[in-house]
Amino acid sequence: MADGTDDQASNATQRIRRRAQTAREEVEGRIHDVEERIHDIEARAREMDARIEKRVGRNLPKALFFGLVLGLSLLFSLIFVTELFMLFGAALVVFTSYELASALRFAGRDVPRIPVVVASLGVIAPAYYFGAVGLWAAFLAGVALVTVWRLVEQLRPSLRNDPAVSLPTDLAAGIFVLAYVSLLGGFAVVMTATDGGEWWTLAYLIIVICIDIGAYASGLAFGKTPMAPRISPKKTWEGFAGAVAVALIAGVLLALFMLGQPWWVGLILAAAMVVTATVGDLTESLVKRDLGIKDISTWLPGHGGFLDRLDSILPSTVAAYLVFLAFGVA
């Protein structure tokens, strides 16, 4: 009787173990299926990112994240405390001038980075407190500093006797960095410091961003005809058309609801931004092509360098400032 009870208990235990084993195997199988699906989703996401990056030349998620961080920082400085825009602009000018000078040095132009950075930083405060006059004065002082520094460097025997060193080319490269980065960027500081100018700065930046987004989306969806295949193969006329359409709409809306201007002023501002942003983008692509590099630097994940993000903005600053002087100054 006891043996029968023991057999029944043993059989029950074995059934429980088999059921537990079966349940464990089912759970493990489901977990495995879930893991396989996750891996499959990750693989498809990586494949999609790779296709997008191959087509547009950037890592889109990283680009969006860092672009959002920079955009929110800029927005805060313009709307709440305009003095912070001076610090924001100073940081951008320092990093951008340093990376461009470094890229030129890599290509064989002996650009002295220390005076270039100092001179670039030196334009911000005069531009903010003394306007366009202060900007030009600081820029010319910076040119003098870079020139004297490079001339003193040339006195070293290692440079004086080096036939590969071209002093005029080096001086021109240093002045190019100051003009392209600090002088052009300085006009945004001048405009922001003027009464009501911060809204014009914000407006032109929004339009340039819309141009970038419109060109990207339209080019990705419809792009077939290269605009300048030898300079920038990924830019298409279809993308340009999308940029124009988005920019004009944004310009009209910003003129009416943010700047308090007639709709046609928004069209003028947008049209100017389309021209300068496109020229700036192609110019930076031409510079990189001449230097033999893909990105000016790798400081901004998904974006390349600071100049890779400011290439459309810097030339547009001057055009925006001129439109502001024509219509925005009371």
Rank of each mutant, 00 (worst) to 15 (best):
G196P: 07
A2R: 15
L78T: 07
G122H: 04
L300S: 01
L145E: 04
D49R: 12
V190N: 01
V165H: 13
P262E: 10
A228R: 05
V116W: 00
G29N: 06
R30S: 12
P262I: 11
S297I: 00
P233T: 10
R289E: 03
R51N: 10
V69W: 01
G197V: 11
P115I: 01
V148Q: 09
Q261Y: 08
W200D: 05
A12W: 07
A63E: 09
T82H: 13
G280D: 08
K224R: 15
Q14L: 15
V177M: 07
R37F: 04
V116Q: 00
R51Q: 12
A326S: 11
G280M: 02
I207R: 08
L74H: 02
F240L: 14
I175G: 04
L253M: 13
R150A: 02
P157A: 13
A91H: 00
R289K: 11
P226Y: 08
V189R: 05
V69Q: 10
E153L: 10
W136H: 13
M258N: 03
L269G: 08
V146A: 10
A319L: 00
G292Q: 07
N161E: 15
K62V: 03
H39N: 14
A203R: 04
E35D: 08
V93A: 10
T22D: 12
A217L: 14
A20L: 11
G134N: 13
A9C: 06
G185F: 06
E83H: 11
F240A: 15
Y98I: 04
V117S: 05
A277Q: 10
V246E: 08
L269M: 06
V133W: 10
V323N: 04
G223W: 02
I38W: 09
M1H: 11
W299N: 06
F80W: 13
Q8A: 11
L282H: 10
R58C: 14
R44T: 15
V279R: 01
A270L: 10
V69I: 14
K294F: 04
L155E: 11
G280H: 09
S182C: 14
L220M: 09
G142Q: 02
K235S: 11
W136K: 04
S316Q: 12
L72W: 09
S73N: 02
T298Y: 09
R44G: 10
F257E: 13
E53P: 04
D110F: 06
R156T: 13
L248K: 00
A217P: 06
L286Q: 06
Y321E: 07
R309Q: 07
M48W: 10
Y129R: 12
H303M: 05
G57P: 06
F80G: 14
P233W: 05
L104S: 08
L220Y: 15
E284A: 05
A119I: 05
G29A: 13
D49V: 08
L178S: 06
R150H: 02
